[in-house]
């Protein structure tokens, strides 16, 4: 891989990471109350809804 090619791949990767971080931050902000999306998934809180899920969801 030449240098230009490497730089362009790196830029693409950096863009993806940046987008991911911004999305997570936005969603975390959106969900509010200082709750983080990772906390929600791990906490296994009491759910108020009995979800109809597929076997891949859980």
């Amino acid at each position: 891989m030449n240098k230009d090619n490497f730089n362009s791949k790196r830029r693409e990767f950096n863009k993806l990471v940046f987008k991911y971080i911004v999305s997570i931050t936005l969603l975390n902000l959106y969900l509010s109350n200082g709750e983080r999306i990772s906390d929600i998934s791990n906490k296994k809180r009491y759910s108020k809804i009995k979800w109809v899920l597929s076997s891949n969801d859980v």
């Binding site: 759910s47 969801d57 859980v58």
Partner: peptide
């Protein structure tokens, strides 16, 4: 969203 992610983390 909050409720669903409690029980179906793979959907995050």
């Amino acid at each position: 969203v909050k409720d669903l992610l409690c029980v179906a983390p793979s959907l995050s």
